[in-house]
């Protein structure tokens, strides 16, 4: 369900950086399949690996918190919603670790906007998430995904796969709008990413140490994202 693009979390406004990459020339030489697939693969090896690792850690922390504070959980949202909510320091540190590995301000903003959208949905569907994260707040998307993964009983592998698949699928789906082609062909690009997605899952699922979060940057993706944020002609938010 979380991997379904029809989930109402604003997914249709995202291209996972494909729109600015296309504007910068991706697909311009007519080798679209190779380009779009390679772009998604590059992400799986860099930015998406970091996202998935942060989600895995967030799931880990949320599960640990649920065990240690079982006796005195904060009241779930909806009772009044006005009491200040203090996020556990481990989540704050995790957000900082994520931010440190996400140098583009535009990308941090976009991720927090998406995290908020997920959090709003979680408030209605999986309200236990609000025992870990403050309601309707701008928190990096992988933290929210990890917390949802924890309260819905997902394994670390499932959480990592979810982040990886969603990112790849976002690229592929956006390509149909940006470089229109045969949708079935686009699905074959996605299928070809299977091994890369599983490699990512194997690498990040065992993580429990915040210092081990991968930090392989993708400077071009960051640069494109910054450019995109001030661009006039935009189909996608990021």
């Amino acid at each position: 369900m979380l991997a379904d693009g029809r989930l109402p979390t604003g997914g249709h406004t995202q291209s996972a950086g494909l729109e600015p990459a296309v504007r910068a020339g991706l697909g311009a030489d007519g080798k679209q399949p190779a380009d779009v697939g390679a772009y998604a693969r590059d992400r799986l090896r860099t930015v998406t690996r970091t996202e998935a690792a942060v989600a895995v850690l967030a799931r880990h922390y949320a599960n640990a918190q649920a065990i240690t504070t079982e006796a005195d959980k904060p009241s779930p949202a909806g009772t009044s919603g006005t009491e200040p909510f203090v996020m556990a320091s481990r989540f704050v540190q995790l957000e900082s670790a994520w931010a440190a590995r996400t140098p583009s301000r535009a990308l941090r903003t976009a991720s927090r906007r998406q995290g908020r959208a997920y959090l709003r949905l979680a408030e209605r569907v999986w309200p236990d998430v609000l025992q870990h994260l403050p309601r309707d707040s701008e928190i990096a998307r992988p933290l929210v995904i990890g917390a949802i993964g924890a309260v819905t009983g997902l394994s670390p592998e499932q959480v990592a796969r979810l982040v990886a698949y969603d990112d790849a699928q976002t690229v592929i789906a956006a390509s149909l709008k940006l470089l229109p082609g045969d949708p079935a062909v686009a699905v074959t690009w996605l299928a070809a990413l299977h091994d890369d997605i599983e490699r990512l899952v194997n690498d990040v699922a065992p993580l429990t140490d915040i210092d081990k979060i991968p930090a392989a940057g993708a400077p071009l993706i960051d640069q494109f994202a910054e450019q995109h944020a001030i661009e006039r002609m935009r189909l996608f938010h990021a």
Binding site: P8, T9, T13, H237
Partner: peptide
Amino acid sequence: ETGACPHTAIRDDVT
């Protein structure tokens, strides 16, 4: 932004 889905933006996913 609507990601080329103006219909979705006001109906199926208003987030």
